[in-house]
């Protein structure tokens, strides 16, 4: 098995190879974590989809296709504080090609064509998203979904 999962209090970390065959494992982990933090059934499904799209983008664009390079996912349950609601924070870290975060944009949806919808879907589902270039190489995508009462 080329994936491992470790749990520490309110945080889960999952490391997987950049291979589509492991996406189903990432979906299951996301789904369970989203349930545990108390997201609604619909939000659980949508967050799972957003994470899937983020991972697929890493495999396709950061690494240029399936490979044995790592993707590290972190899930953090954060309690409400300072006026911010309780939330699930998910980071997706890769070690592939770096791209100027300002260049990562949704495409025009009026242009009907196959593909290129991943970023739009992620932005539509998550309450906050931020791409950054990491000093050790690769990119980090931080996504937040609020737990709505």
């Amino acid at each position: 098995m080329n994936s491992q999962c470790k749990i520490a209090s309110n945080q889960v970390e999952l490391r997987m190879n950049a291979s589509p065959q492991f996406l189903c494992i990432a979906r299951q982990a996301t789904n369970r974590m989203a349930q545990m933090v108390g997201l609604s059934e619909k939000d659980v499904d949508m967050v799972t989809l957003a994470v899937e799209e983020a991972l697929a983008n890493v495999i396709q664009h950061s690494y240029g296709g399936p490979c044995d390079e790592p993707i590290i996912m972190q899930f953090r349950q954060i309690a409400s504080s300072h006026g911010r609601p309780a939330r699930l924070e998910i980071t997706v870290r890769d070690f592939g090609k770096q791209v100027d975060p300002t260049c990562i944009k949704s495409r025009d949806l009026d242009d009907i064509r196959p593909g290129g919808l991943g970023v739009h879907i992620i932005k539509s589902i998550m309450d906050e998203i931020e791409y950054s270039c990491e000093s050790g190489g690769g990119m980090k995508l931080q996504m937040v979904k609020y737990v709505r009462e």
Partner: peptide, 16 residues
Amino acid sequence: EFMDSSGLAVLVEALQ
């Protein structure tokens, strides 16, 4: 039970 945008892309191409 689940489909991501790669599946959606296949359907859009088939429709076109």
